[in-house]
Design a binder for these strands. Structure first.
Length: 199
DNA sequence: CAAGTGATTAGC
DNA sequence: CTAATCACTTGC
């Protein structure tokens, strides 16, 4: 079952980031197959007031447009000439907040993931934002898709995560954001071996 | 540890 | 139009 719209619109990006940990990210892979992973690492991007956000100062361009939609849509973009990044849009329409999914633990379709990432140990199949998009085949065609209804990627509920198991720290790769780069908006499951390397 | 890759953007 | 900038990964 897909998580409902209200799951995404209920709170801000940080609240959604916390609730996203442990949930199951699913992408259909044709012929009734699925590729799926458990979310183990995320980053919150808090919108217009967040210097690290693409939508800082309400910057509104063709790329950032999906962030302004009602929560529950996908915001996918391309960085560094070769990697895709998958984000979940949070909050009501008009607030450009989103949560970047940084790492998942492979659960379904692991064979497919191995084939898409040849020569990688299972630990490194999905342990980074670019890696997971590669393993799950998420690309620009998924941009702006509706996770709550009809989209070709979605999230499913899973066993709740205890707050004690969640660790936090500064976000990765946002040094340009000044003081905002220090905010503890990166969250991960403390004991998961599938989180990305940088701490 | 540095190169690479190309979409996106701001600045003319 | 052009140049600069990346929410990163990989192979040296």
């Amino acid at each position: 079952m897909r998580l409902p719209r209200s799951f995404y619109t209920r709170g801000d990006a940080l609240s959604l980031a916390r609730r996203l940990l442990g949930k199951r990210l699913v992408v259909p892979a044709g012929a009734g197959e699925r590729v799926a992973g458990r979310v183990v690492e995320v980053e919150a991007y808090m919108g217009a007031g967040d210097r690290a956000s693409h939508a800082y100062g309400n910057r509104r361009t063709a790329r950032t447009e999906p962030m302004y939609a009602e929560g529950g849509r996908a915001y996918v973009y391309f960085v560094y000439g070769l990697h895709h990044q998958f984000n979940v849009v949070a909050g009501p329409a008009g607030t450009p907040e989103a949560v970047l999914v940084r790492a998942v633990e492979p659960l379904e379709g692991v064979e497919l993931m191995r084939r898409r990432r040849p020569g990688r140990p299972d630990r490194e199949l999905t342990s980074g934002p670019g890696k997971l998009c590669r393993a799950l085949c998420i690309d620009l065609s998924h941009n702006n898709e509706d996770l709550a209804e009809g989209g070709r990627v979605w999230l499913e509920d899973a066993a709740p995560v205890s707050p004690d198991d969640i660790a936090s720290g500064p976000r990765v790769g946002v040094d340009y954001a000044g003081a905002d780069a220090l905010l503890p908006y990166r969250l991960w499951l403390r004991d998961s071996p599938y989180v990305s390397r940088q701490k």
